[in-house]
């Protein structure tokens, strides 16, 4: 099981929790599995099979765009962080 950390704007899909445990072999699978329980989640992050341009996904603090994107393998104990842009000040 991996851990997924959700930025504030996405926590409505986790019942307000900042962190959830997730399952799946790849990032895409993790997002789809989570979406099946929390509908609407994946479409906030994925568009036309790619990660949206105002969202970043990190696995163990590395941007998945520098890895295999949505096909990035997710291992036990990995930490996934999902980060949309925020602008408050």
């Amino acid at each position: 099981m991996a851990t997924m950390r959700l930025s504030t704007p996405l926590r409505k899909y986790s019942g307000g929790k900042p962190e959830v445990t997730v399952e799946g072999e790849t990032l895409l699978e993790v997002l789809e599995k989570f979406d099946s329980k929390h509908p609407g989640f994946a479409e906030k992050i994925i568009e036309n099979g790619e990660i949206k341009r105002f969202v970043n996904v990190f696995v163990n603090n590395i941007d998945v765009r520098t890895k295999d994107g949505l096909n990035t393998k997710i291992e036990e104990n990995d930490t996934i962080s999902i980060l949309p842009a925020v602008s408050g000040g």
Partner: peptide
Amino acid sequence: PDAPPAGMV
């Protein structure tokens, strides 16, 4: 690269 659509954040 792009800002989120209005209302998302």
